[in-house]
Structure formats: C-alpha cells, structure tokens
C-alpha cells in the first residue's frame, strides 16, 4: 500500500520532489503574506480595547502556532528516520530545526513587543511565553547537537533522538508551567475570549497563518535540498545537475 512512497527515500527523487513542490508553496506564501499583512496592518478594524497594538497578532499567533507545529513535525520526521532508517527524514529534521527556532524567536520577540504596551513589561513569566522560551531552547539543543558531531551520519541520528525526547517533554513542560503559573500569581494574559474574535480580524489571521506555513515550507525545502546536496556531493546525479544535464564525468 505504501509502496509508492518508497522511491522518495532516494536522495535524487526527494530533491526533485522538493523542486516540484517549492514553487506552489512560494506562490501561496508571497500572495498570502502580501494580502495578509496589508489586510492586517491597514484594513482590519482596530480592537476596541487594545487599539492598533493588537495588529501584532497577525504575526504573533501564526509564529506561535507554527513553531509548535514545526516541532511536532520535526519529531514525527525523527521518528520515521529512526524506525525506518530513512536518511532523507534525518536530513529533514536538520532542515526543520533552524526554521522552527527562527519562528519561535519571532513569537517571543513579537510577544514581548505586544506585552510592553499591554501589560507594561517586556517579559511576563506567563505560561505560554515560558513554554515558548523552553521550546526555543529545545530547538537550539537539536541544532547545537547536530553541529557538535564531526560525523554527520551520527549527528543526524543523535538529533533525531533528542527531537523525540523533546517532544515527549513539551506537553509535560507546558502543563507544568501552566500549573506553576496559576499557583503562583494567577493568569495575567488578556486574550480574546474564545470565539469572540470578529470575522473581520479572523480572516486576515487565517490568511497569515496559511502564508506563514507556506513560507516555512519553502525555507524548509530549500534547506532540505541543501542538506541532500551536501551529503550527495560526490554522486553523479549532483554532478550532472551542476553541469547542466550534460554527462560531465
């Protein structure tokens, strides 16, 4: 049943798939970001309470959601890499980690910039912010571990194990931090209560989430292509690719 997937374990085929998929994601990302940012910044109505500062939501929420999502997908890829011993999945883990870390950093920066006018401080030890900070540490751990190894094969496998250990911990960390927060000081976050977000704000938000996801996909695919090329540097197909299809060797 899954046989059609098997060819994609080959590096060359995976590289081609990356090339085929990238333009679609790129188009959606560019259009989505242009529409989403203009709509969010200029056309969406101001919040009655937070005024124009709430416009940060259009990048804060997508980056927060997607940094979590990227971690989950990284862990799933790591699981695939470890169980079925597929090297391309290992490379994908390494491709996702820096992108996830960048997006987690964006979520933290935007969170701080939103917190300053709303709560009066740049940083609150709020459950979500703390979880996001720890998530960033976990990402940095995966990246640092990968770069610490000389042998890139071992590095990939070690990073996969760490990604899987991390994903077991993320929910525990999240709930422990939430619980710790409520025990100590009570929640200070002023969020939009549930579905109270108006459709005039919801639509640009959804567009931004989609565009962000596609942009991340583009960057991940680019990095995956780089990793594949780096590993397969000496293979004939890479040489053919470089010398423009001619059989050079």
């Amino acid at each position: 049943m899954w046989k059609w997937l098997h060819p994609y374990a080959k590096a060359e085929k995976a590289y081609q798939v990356c090339n085929t998929l990238m333009p679609y994601f790129a188009v959606v990302a560019v259009i989505g970001l242009i529409v989403g940012w203009t709509w969010g910044l200029a056309y969406a109505p101001a919040d009655y309470q937070q005024k124009d500062s709430y416009r940060i939501i259009f990048i804060h929420v997508p980056s927060a959601i997607l940094s979590m999502g990227a971690y989950t997908s990284m862990a799933i890829t790591a699981f695939i890499a470890m169980v079925w011993q597929i090297r391309n999945a290992e490379l994908a883990v390494i491709a996702i980690a820096p992108v996830g870390a960048a997006v987690a950093a964006i979520a933290l920066i935007t969170g701080a910039a939103w917190g300053k006018p709303m709560w009066g401080t740049w940083w609150v030890w709020d459950a979500r912010l703390t979880t996001m900070l720890i998530l960033l540490f976990l990402y940095i751990g995966v990246i640092a571990l990968y770069h610490a190894f000389e042998d890139k094969g071992a590095a990939g496998r070690a990073s996969c194990i760490l990604a899987m250990v991390g994903v077991v911990n993320v929910p525990i960390i999240h709930y422990s931090v939430e619980w710790w927060n409520t025990l100590h000081q009570g929640s200070t976050i002023t969020k939009f209560d549930g579905s109270a977000i108006d459709s005039s704000m919801l639509y640009p938000l959804l567009i931004n989430i989609l565009a962000f996801a596609c942009l991340m996909a583009v960057i991940v695919l680019m990095r995956l292509k780089n990793e594949i090329l780096e590993r397969e540097k000496h293979r004939p197909w890479v040489r053919n690719l470089v010398s423009g299809g001619k059989n050079a060797v």
Binding site: A46, K51, S53, R55, I109, W114, K116, P117, L215
Partner: peptide, 20 residues
Amino acid sequence: AMGGYGFYVWLSYGACAVIL
C-alpha cells in the same frame, strides 16, 4: 503611528521580516 503603538507594531513586523 499606529495610534501611538507604532514603535511596538513596527518593531514586531520588522523583527519578523529581518529574521525570516
């Protein structure tokens, strides 16, 4: 000016754009 919140809004959007 973003209704007085310009600094924070543009800081976030700028940081996001720079990082990505």
